[in-house]
Structures are given as C-alpha cells and as structure tokens.
C-alpha cells in the first residue's frame, strides 16, 4: 500500500474492526505520539559514565599492579574494588542517581551487576533473612549468573568435543 509510511491517526484506530489490526494500528499510533528521551544525549551520557567507570577500574588494576600484584591478581582486586564501591554507592542511594544520568553507562559495567544485587538485598530486608534477602537478592542478578554459567558451559562442551577430536 502506498500509505503505509503515513502516520496512523486516531480515526484509523477507531474505525478498524479487526481486533489484531486495530491493536497494531493503535500501537503504531501510540509510538508516534509518545515522546522519548533525546537519544544522542543519552548515548553521550552512557559513553561518559561508562568510560569513567572503566577508567576507575583501570586505576584500581594499575594501583594493585604497582603494589606488586600479578596480572590476574590485580584484575581480581580491581573487580573486588569496583563491586565494593558500587554497593556502597547503592546503599547511600547515590548509584541510582548516577544511573538516571548515565543509563547503560551504569548498567553495563560490573558495577551495574553489583547494584542489581545490592538493591533488592536492601529493599527486601523487611521480608526476612531467608525469603526476603535470601530469595530476592537474585531477582535481577540471578538470570545473569544462570545464563552466564549455562552459555559458557554449552560453549565449553563444544570446545571439549573439539578438543577430544583434536581440532583445538
């Protein structure tokens, strides 16, 4: 149809009788009129905040290396430091404020993972040690752990087979 690129109007939605088409048209109409954040500003913020967090991470790694830790060890201490920093900032309610500005810049680094563990731990403490903190601590981070372990296991199986076959 030639009109497909045109905007869907409210009248298109109202006069449409077929339920599925009506829903599609309405969703398109909603999408057209719903305002969105300035995506370029968002991307820039994410770049800045994400970049800065990685620089802090690099700073930690370099610090521990200068103290005499080997490559692996200083990387581990770097992770440990970032996680601790993020959780303290979460407890002080500062991390969500940075996240509001930084978006993916705070979600993507390991600090985002730590925030997703700490936030429910604090929020659900009223529901008890076991069913509150114990269960809910994994509400957001659980899937990351599960699918991280699972996907690396699947890839590991493939690697193992190739190894046995003498390919790698």
């Amino acid at each position: 149809m030639q009109n497909q690129k045109d905007k869907v109007t409210a009248s298109d939605v109202v006069i449409e009788k077929d339920k599925t088409t009506k829903e599609e048209k309405y969703n398109q109409y909603v999408k057209d009129i719903t305002p969105t954040h300035n995506i370029f500003k968002n991307i820039l913020n994410a770049f800045l905040v994400g970049g800065i967090i990685c620089v802090i991470g690099q700073g930690f790694i370099n610090l521990y290396a200068s103290l005499g830790a080997g490559e692996e060890l200083s990387a581990s201490y770097g992770t440990l430091s970032l996680v601790l920093l993020s959780i303290v900032l979460t407890g002080l309610n500062i991390y969500p404020k940075i996240a509001k500005f930084g978006g993916a810049g705070t979600l993507v680094p390991i600090t985002g993972f730590a925030n997703s563990v700490a936030a429910p731990a604090v929020e659900f403490k009223k529901e008890g040690q076991v069913f509150g903190i114990g269960c809910k601590i994994f509400t957001i981070a659980g899937p990351v752990i599960l699918y991280g372990i699972l996907s690396s296991w699947v890839l590991g199986v493939i690697y193992y087979i190739l190894m046995e076959l003498g390919v790698v």
């Binding site: 719903t34 305002p35 969105t36 954040h37 968002n42 979460t90 407890g91 309610n93 991390y95 969500p96 940075i98 996240a99 509001k100 978006g103 705070t106 979600l107 985002g112 925030n115 997703s116 700490a118 936030a119 429910p120 604090v122 929020e123 659900f124 809910k136 509400t139 957001i140």
Partner: peptide
Amino acid sequence: EKQFRFPLAYGNQRPLA
C-alpha cells in the same frame, strides 16, 4: 515500585512516558 518495577536503589532510566 517495589511490587511492579524495581527495588528503589536499583539504577535505571525512566522513559518519558
């Protein structure tokens, strides 16, 4: 928020809508 969305200390961006 706790019931329908995220724990309050969780960092996320709220869309304009």
